[in-house]
């Protein structure tokens, strides 16, 4: 059922899930991921279709785009993050939804982004889907490794402290604004870089790629996978991206079933699939 093309989409989903997870690990419900994803994708689409486009592009050029996208999204996130991160809970969530919509309309209206049709004919760094699997897989491995390291680091512990109690953590001398901003910027960079890979994989890019729907779907990755460990959003992203495809045999009912999973998942697994208790048991398990 699963082919390499779907596997790429699943890995991209996991990366986006991680991007939503990072601010949440510091207690911030930010839904800005699709905005930065769209910025990254648009940047890659613009850069790689300049001049007379060859159908292939070197891996080095793609890495260059990723570097640029990371820089651009980091700068944007710094600019936006400072005012926005003063907001709490649902206010933060809605202001980041606003950001997503503003970016979407901007991409639709700007004179150089191809309007409704978008940018097409994006050159390919790989001839086979397997290339994308290896490339995005390495990116996921790197992001996962960093997250694993983060949990044990000073920054990671500060993030967890803010998530548990922001006021108390401030009293303990944690520079909360800086920690929250760091998480936000890291999330934006990850989304931007993912956008670059997605633009090449999708062959085309348009304003519809970073929409409110994406914000909610990626949030669902984190909630269903579990928001207490970086593995939660990864597994949530992999499973939920594959789900509509795996549900193809049920035909017209598949979106109804997909909705039921989102509806009932949190009811039965309020902490998500990957809970701290589960990880603890796994860690203590001796074969």
């Amino acid at each position: 059922m699963i082919d390499n093309g779907l596997l790429v989409q699943m890995i991209l989903g996991a990366l986006l899930g991680l991007s939503v997870y990072l601010p949440m690990a510091a207690g911030q419900l930010s839904l800005a991921t699709p905005a930065f994803y769209a910025v990254g994708g648009t940047l890659a689409a613009l850069l790689s279709t300049q001049g007379d486009t060859p159908s292939a592009i070197s891996l080095g050029a793609v890495l260059g785009e990723m570097l640029l996208a990371a820089g651009l999204t980091a700068a944007l996130a710094l600019l936006v993050g400072l005012p926005v991160l003063r907001l709490r809970g649902i206010y933060l969530a809605i202001s980041t939804i606003a950001l997503v919509e503003i970016v979407r309309v901007a991409i639709l209206n700007l004179p150089f982004t191809g309007g409704a049709t978008g940018i097409f004919g994006i050159p390919q760094p790989f001839q086979q889907p397997l290339g994308y699997v290896l490339f995005s897989g390495s990116l996921l491995a790197l992001a996962g490794w960093l997250c694993q390291r983060l949990e044990a680091s000073r920054l990671g512990r500060s993030m967890a402290a803010i998530r548990d109690d922001e006021l108390a953590s401030r009293c303990m001398g944690i520079h909360t604004t800086r920690v929250k901003l760091t998480a936000f910027v890291a999330s934006a960079m990850l989304a931007g870089v993912t956008g670059v890979v997605a633009a090449h994989y999708l062959n085309t890019w348009n304003a519809r790629q970073g929409s409110f729907d994406v914000a909610i779907t990626t949030l669902a990755f984190v909630i269903l996978g579990g928001s207490r460990s970086w593995l939660g959003p990864v597994i949530g992203g992999l499973l939920l991206t594959a789900l509509p495809e795996l549900l193809r045999p049920v035909g017209d009912l598949r979106l109804v079933l997909f909705g039921l999973v989102i509806l009932l998942g949190p009811v039965f697994f309020p902490q998500g699939l990957i809970t701290p208790a589960l990880l603890e048991r796994l860690g203590r398990w001796k074969p």
Binding site: I2, N4, L7, I11, L130, V133, L134, G137, A141, G144, Q148, E151, A152, S229, W230, L231, V234, I235, L238, I274, P276, L278, L279, E280, R281, L282, G283, R284, W285
Partner: peptide, 20 residues
């Protein structure tokens, strides 16, 4: 917990590689 995540991550990477 950290050891658990490391183990799960390894298993996941293996599963993805097998799928690919």
């Amino acid at each position: 917990r950290r050891r658990g995540s490391a183990r799960l991550a390894t298993a996941l990477a293996g599963a993805l590689a097998l799928l690919a």
